[in-house]
Amino acid sequence: MPRSDRSPLLLAGLLATAGAAHFASPRQFDATVPGALPGTARAWTYGSGVVEFALAAGLALPRTRRAAALATAAFFVGVFPANVKMAVDWRDRPTPQKTAAFARLPVQVPLVLWARGVAKGARGAA
């Protein structure tokens, strides 16, 4: 399998793993849900897990890959406020935890670029 064909599947695997984590350990994700959102934190946690599974499935299929990759890029932008909330909430934690929380913030940029690259490389891309 050419390297370019593996990239969408690796991204799909990342999303599927994250989606599973939302169901396996929801409490850690509940804590990152901004309080301004309507409904319960658990509903947002499970909902984002379902979205991650759906995006992973869309990335895995060549026919839906481009649309799923663009949606994935938007999703990564959309969950950024949760990462900011985590960094703010963890600012007084021990240095390793605080460092991990703040290090997550710039990681969103390569994730968005990865998803955009997958979209660009998908069949039918303009």
Rank of each mutant, 00 (worst) to 15 (best):
V118R: 00
A115N: 01
H22E: 12
T64N: 02
G49K: 01
W90Y: 13
Q28N: 09
G49T: 10
G39W: 10
A24P: 00
P38F: 13
A56G: 06
T17S: 09
A101T: 01
A60Q: 03
A74Q: 08
A67H: 06
T99A: 14
R123C: 08
Q28I: 15
A18W: 03
A125R: 00
A125Y: 06
D30I: 06
R63M: 07
V77K: 00
P106A: 15
L37R: 15
A24V: 00
F102D: 08
G47I: 12
V84A: 01
P2D: 13
K85T: 11
V112T: 09
L14W: 04
A54I: 04
R104T: 14
A125W: 05
Q108A: 14
G49H: 07
S25I: 14
Q28V: 15
L113V: 13
F23S: 13
G47V: 07
K98H: 09
G13A: 09
T72L: 12
V33N: 02
A73M: 06
D30F: 03
G49V: 11
P81G: 07
M1Y: 06
L14K: 04
V118L: 01
L105H: 08
V50Q: 10
V88D: 13
L10K: 08
A126V: 03
V77T: 09
D5V: 01
